[in-house]
Structures are given as C-alpha cells and as structure tokens.
Amino acid sequence: MASQGTKRSYEQMETDGERQNATEIRASVGKMIDGIGRFYIQMCTELKLSDYEGRLIQNSLTIERMVLSAFDERRNKYLEEHPSAGKDPKKTGGPIYKRVDRKWMRELVLYDKEEIRRIWRQANNGDDATAGLTHMMIWHSNLNDTTYQRTRALVRTGMDPRMCSLMQGSTLPRRSGAAGAAVKGVGTMVMELIRMIKRGINDRNFWRGENGRKTRSAYERMCNILKGKFQTAAQRAMMDQVRESRNPGNAEIEDLIFLARSALILRGSVAHKSCLPACVYGPAVASGYDFEKEGYSLVGIDPFKLLQNSQVYSLIRPNENPAHKSQLVWMACNSAAFEDLRVLSFIRGTKVSPRGKLSTRGVQIASNENMDAMESSTLELRSRYWAIRTRSGGNTNQQRASAGQISVQPAFSVQRNLPFDKPTIMAAFTGNTEGRTSDMRAEIIRMMEGAKPEEMSFQGRGVFELSDERAANPIVPSFDMSNEGSYFFGDNAEEYDN
C-alpha cells in the first residue's frame, strides 16, 4: 500500500510504541512475548500442572481467558453494579484439565481477579502490559475465525453469508486497541457500523446529549479505520460520505453494504499476525530463551520457528480426527482463516481442507461434555516452508469459486491468482447506482469489472525454506488448481455463540 510509510507498523501498534527502528520493534515485541511466557509459567505453578498438562491447549485457553477477564475493567465495573446470582464479580476462573488415573478430569478453578492481575503485572515488570493482553485477544479471535462461520451475524446486519472472507476479527472485544483495529476485516468494521446506525434509528437519543457526542466521535473513528483499509480513492470518498452524514440511517447502511461487497474484489488491507497460545510461549521462556534479547516478529519467520520446536497437546472428542484438529489450530496460529487453501497447503506441506470436510468441533470443551471418553493427542503445528504475512489485500483475480465463501483475504505475501467468483459478486451490483453516491458507485463498479483474471497478485513473492531466515531465496510455489480455494466452501461450520 502506498501510504505504508505514514502508518505505524503493526509491531508498533502491538507494543504501543512511538516510531521505533526494526531492532527496537523486535525487542519490544519480544518483551511482550516474554511477559506472556513468564505469566503462563507462574500460572502453571499456581495450578500445580504437570509439564504435559501445561502444554494442553484447553488449559492455555482457560488461563488466557482468566487474565483477560481480570483486566476487563468495563465488564468488571458492570458486574459490580449489576450483581447477578451466583456470579462473584471479583473472581474469575474456568475449567482446568488434569490427568488422573490414566483419565482426563475437569476441575473448575476460581481465583481472585486481583490475584491474577498481581501475577500478570509481576510477570511483566510491574506494568499492565496491555500489548500482551491484546495479543491474547487476537489469538482467540484468530481461533474463532478458523472455527466458526459468522453466517447468522452477517444475515442479521443485512449482509450476504458468502462475504465471510471479510469477517476477520469479528469476535475481537471493543477494547483491543490499535492492534485489534489493524486485524479487523472490512466486513467486521461494516458490521460494527451498521449495528451502531441501527441503534440510532431505533433509539432517538442515541446521537443526542453528552453521551451522543461520545457516540458520534466513536462512529467517526470507526469510519476512519474502515476508510484506511480501502485502497481505492472511490471507496475512500464513499467512506467520507458515510462519516460526514448528519443523521446516519438506511442510506448509510446501503452504502456500507455496497462497500463491503466491493471489497470482495477491490480488497481492503487487513493486517495478519501470528499470535500463538500462551502454552507455546511459556515452555520456550522456561527453556531459557530470551525473546527480548533475541527479538521477535509476528509477521516473519519467528512464529514458524517457534511452532517448529513446540509440543502442544489437545483434548480430542471420541469421533474427532486429531489431524483435522491440528489443521484448525495451525490455521489459527498463522492467522489464515480466509487465505486461499492452495497457498496454505503449499506452505504447510500437507493438504489443507475446507472447514466442512474437517471432523472436528471447536477447541474448547463445553462444561456439560462427558470427560470419560476424552483422549488427548499432539497437535501437528509444523510447516514445510515459511512466508511473510501481508497486510495488503493483493490485486484481484477471477477463479472458480464456491457456493460458500466467494473470495479470499490473503494472509501471506505469496504470488498467486486470487480466487473470487466474479459473476456471483457482480450480480449483486445491478441497477442500484442512484442517489448521492452514484458517481462513486459507478466508478467502483467500473474498477471491479476491469479486474483481470490473468493478473498475478504479489508478483514474484515466494515462500522460503525454514533454514532461509533472511528470506534470501524465494520459492514461487505451484498450486494444484483442481483443489478448492475457499475454506468455508459450501460450508456447515458451527455458528459462533458468545
């Protein structure tokens, strides 16, 4: 993207840094990872977990959730003011799984939030270390993106479920800051804005008074975040219109849905970061690795190297396929839920299948599930090659597409044709070009129609051997075009429920 120079890199967003050079960025990201790792080690000690239990991804998720809940100030305040039966607002906890007599047992633990905050700050040299908290939120978000298709949420806001490739980060909490905003897809931002506008339509006082002023500035800020994701002048001009509207209503909703559809071809720039579970960072720190000293990046080879040398386990339900569970977590670790499966298959070195073909449910185990038949197995999170994460949407291309997802959002900077089903997408653009945004709409449609099938995206960008740390010898991959490109292809993934 041309304006790259004016933006802070995501590592800076990730670490609240002012302008830093590459070495400083690597050190501050490393410091953040160190903090998460030290916190995780301490929690495993508190909970008396064995090494194996500490490497269980379900335990990692519970521990991450506990610290996120302990620092969720708004919710904590709300819980104190609106006490609900049987919930102690000062405590947080969740299921911890232990191996007892050759069987997995679930144990519900409860801790004072104050105590968890103390352990977290102690692991982070006394700081609140917001960057580390956001990092864990993005890992949870990436896992949700890989596990669930947001059909219901899309339909509720009037969008087409086939636009799911635009929904990265749709389950990120509001408090995820600049680093969170960077990884949100165009569809996620559109959905947040539509929800806001709908509230304004239904509630006369939404934009009024002292609160209304705050609401208005939040609305304009979200519009600017979305505008910054678009790469064409016409899309940005249309966002200006939406932002400046005196009284946002149905016309703005129409414009936003139009823009979301246009992003299936004229893709937005959305950041991709490899955020790993805390149970990967903990053992690495415990083994003596100093992330701050060595430096770390979320968008280069580092996460690949770390996963190459990590042992992570997962509980497996009786009829689940461990290899499929591994694929789910591998995609989440690489922030690749909406990437082209052919690119992923090449990088991973084994075939990556669409969601609907995987015999696996989510990673988390519900409290009512029976533990008797639970097994555990090693997650295979290694890769054959590594590639640089991208934040450009890439230019655009036609490809055989599917009944489910009709476009992709690249996660890796790797040369390819970008699949999208042009006739299906263009069919949504018939007729409606009147109104105050008509010239911009016409211009956007013209650009979409001009998108050429034979153009290559990320020209000359390749993948790298894991021994090639400096990215000196790019390998331009070859793809098996007979395979499906979309992950949520004609899909039956479970729906995400809060």
Rank of each mutant, 00 (worst) to 15 (best):
K198A: 08
E53T: 11
E369L: 08
E434M: 08
R106V: 09
S141P: 12
C279W: 09
P283D: 09
N309K: 15
D16F: 04
Q409F: 00
T424N: 13
T396K: 09
R118S: 06
S413H: 04
T232Q: 10
S376K: 09
T130K: 15
D302F: 07
A336F: 00
E210M: 11
S392D: 01
E80I: 12
R416C: 11
E465M: 15
L466N: 00
A182T: 10
F291M: 11
K90Y: 03
Y148L: 05
A179K: 13
R261N: 05
G54L: 03
L266F: 04
W104F: 15
R382H: 05
A2Y: 01
A2P: 00
K305N: 09
E24Y: 10
S438P: 01
Y296Q: 11
E484K: 14
G249I: 08
G93H: 08
N309E: 00
G37T: 04
P423M: 07
V329P: 06
L154H: 00
A427F: 01
S407G: 12
A260C: 09
I365G: 08
R121G: 05
E80T: 13
K198Y: 08
R246V: 04
G450P: 12
A284P: 13
E454T: 13
A427I: 07
G180Q: 10
R38S: 09
P419L: 13
C44W: 11
T6V: 00
L328W: 06
N142C: 07
K90E: 01
S486T: 14
F258D: 03
R195Y: 08
N205R: 03
Y219M: 11
A471R: 01
S9E: 01
S486N: 08
S413G: 07
K90D: 02
R121Y: 10
P248Y: 01
G490H: 06
N319H: 15
I365P: 01
K48R: 04
T146V: 12
K198E: 03
S141R: 04
G177H: 06
L315A: 08
N432P: 13
A411Q: 01
M189G: 11
R317L: 04
A286M: 11
R400A: 06
S60W: 03
W104K: 03
L344R: 02
A27R: 14
W139D: 05
R389D: 06
T151E: 11
I253D: 09
G37I: 03
Y385V: 13
I33C: 14
Q122H: 14
K48T: 14
V285N: 10
A153I: 06
